[in-house]
Design a protein around this nucleic acid. Structure first.
Lengths: 370, 370
DNA sequence: CTGAAAGCGCTTACAG
DNA sequence: CTGAAAGCGCTTACAG
């Protein structure tokens, strides 16, 4: 069931008028009130339709006319009303961000990036956090999309992996872009990270330091990033002639607690691993904790690599070697793909992934000499 | 100068139609298309004006009529189009969040809280990060507010401290609520934290552990929170018969680096302080770093208290004693005050502050015995 | 208590 | 290349 949406109102009765009204009432011919398309049309001595054509970049306007109208628009500081345009277009100039990712830094970074990509285009970003596991997720998001007649949405991981959701969006004619770690969709609907490749880099980094007993705390089953990071890590080890022994991998939940648990399990194996790759920084912090408990010095006795480069990672002691991905750039790309969607599928939007890279800090070193 | 806002368009020419059109075209009397006020009026056998009255809670509707119409609205799943309502009302149902706070956890928490408070009210949250120091801040925010005809905005610290900004909002008839640490405005426009009181608690906590050589890294001059936390800390010390020696206070910038610098300065004083209160967690992390460099064990040789309870604080070794404030609750309150604004200034909105509290972890202990 | 007309600021057919 | 009419889905005066 969708929770009923009550009607926002000047409460109680119409006696209360929007306080803004007064400010707009003045009808001085020159100033005050924001100019409308009618003002521009009158001043330019053309019909409002012609002004509209200029607004919408119609080719059917004489160059001279266009210039004349544009000049007046600039002079008057005219900006078309998105509400009115939206009503006529039967859609809004709003972009939704739909997410259920607990990493605040990631979410804020994506917001920044999307806003960057949207800048000057006349769109605004509206937020929609959600619960991926809710029974009513689809209906709930559908309500949001329809009510606001969203132009499009950006889907962050892991909720971006929900194909029923994207199918619903497609049916509703709502553009979308998924930020994901695998080829989940057409290139024009995808902003791709390189989890697999960079996880391989992490493996090679450890192998090249001389480690051979290398363990991993994987992400939770069901997350695409789990698979990508895990597969990539295996790739990397293979490329150095190593492999990931079954009892050197445990599942985690991307939480600190699961990192603690995972580390306890891994560090009790015989022989003990000399390096652990945690699939995110939170779990890496859990490994730090266990290392302390077991009096293992980092990196002397144990090397650790994380993933995400959260602000915390640089503050741990020693600072954590981890993976940084270009979050804001990916957000910007998501916005650009969304805006390009309308331009038509002309240029086959590239699936060029956004490379992440290893930030080598002080949590990794050669293994202790037996 | 405001960066010109280009017009978002179905690019190039009107030949391209919004892909959504097709889905709406069907005119089956029963289904498909979202019902409009006209559909409801027809089905209820009343004029659309009467439906509108129900929507707006007008008292001038016979109870029976109201019930009848409401029933039909429910049955049809009717939700009024915010765009159309907005156009007629000359305002939108959007709430802006304006912020320049670098703490991602804080920003996301506020977003969650505001969204919570807005739930079911038919408003959406649109983001507007900004640069407090920009020469064009006011014009830029004004453009945002006017273009979107925002119903109101939530201002986060520190940009909420800008009175020119709030004055502009007031002139424009845009409701606003400031989230702040001091009585910067009328209660109805303020969501108040208790920085001063909780900073006093921090001081007492240290004093009660037996510390007498207690130092502080203050926030950057110009931030209201700096003053509140500093004054509060002094209050707390006083209440225990201590005071804050001038050479036991240094300015910080709320950054890790400034925490490092501040700690180096403070820990070189003779006699050396046995406890440091850092005005935020980032700076506290800097103190940890310097303690390590100087081989001072935390909390044996040095006690540390932070402020914010960022996720990092619990991951430091040892976990940091710090201040937690009810971020989401404050966000919710901000949304509620905004919505209440329209209801009229009836109930004198309370200025009841939202108490923060000390989270005692392991970075504080009695001072070393001389 | 209820409704017909006009309007919010734009765009879509449809003409010319 | 340009415009007059009608409409997007609501609300505001103004009548009754």
């Amino acid at each position: 069931m969708m929770r009923p949406v009550s009607t926002p109102t000047p409460r109680e009765n119409q006696v209360i008028k929007p306080s803004r009204t007064s400010a707009l009432k003045s009808a001085e011919p020159g100033l005050k009130r924001r100019p409308t398309i009618n003002d521009i049309a009158r001043l330019a001595n053309v019909s409002k339709k012609t002004v509209s054509r200029v607004l919408n970049n119609s080719p059917f306007v004489r160059e001279e006319t266009r210039r004349h109208i544009s000049a007046i628009m600039n002079e008057m500081g005219y900006v078309p009303d998105p509400q009115a345009r939206g009503l006529a277009f039967r859609r809004s100039f709003l972009i939704g961000m739909i997410y259920d990712n607990p990493n605040a830094q990631f979410v804020v970074g994506m917001q920044q990036g999307v806003l960057d990509g949207l800048r000057g285009a006349g769109y605004e970003l509206v937020l929609h956090p959600c619960n991926r596991l809710s029974k009513t997720l689809i209906e709930e998001v559908m309500g949001f999309v329809e009510r606001q007649k969203l132009y499009g949405v950006v889907l962050l991981p892991p909720v971006c992996e929900n194909d029923r959701l994207t199918q619903m969006l497609e049916e509703r004619g709502c553009h979308y872009v998924r930020v994901a770690s695998a080829l989940l969709d057409a290139p024009s609907r995808l902003v791709l990270s390189t989890d697999r490749a960079v996880a391989a880099d992490a493996a090679r980094h450890l192998a090249d330091l001389g480690h051979t007993r290398i363990a991993m705390i994987a992400g939770p089953p069901g997350y695409r990033s789990r698979k990508e990071r895990r597969d990539g890590f295996v790739d990397g080890l293979r490329s150095r002639g190593l492999d990931l022994a079954p009892d050197y991998v445990v599942d985690g939940a991307y939480t600190y607690e699961s990192g603690v648990e995972g580390a306890r399990a891994l560090l009790s194996r015989k022989p003990r691993p000399t390096a652990i790759f945690a699939s995110n920084d939170e779990m890496a912090a859990g490994v730090y904790q266990v290392a302390r408990e077991m009096q293992l010095a980092i990196p002397r006795d144990l090397s650790i690599v994380g993933f995400d480069d959260t602000p915390m990672s640089a503050r741990l002691a020693p600072p954590l070697t981890t993976v940084r991905w270009p979050i804001a750039e990916m957000g910007r790309a998501a916005a650009e793909k969304l805006l390009a969607a309308e331009a038509g599928g002309d240029e086959p939007s590239s699936a060029r992934p956004f490379p992440a890279h290893l930030v080598e800090r002080e949590s990794t070193a050669p293994p202790p000499r037996a």
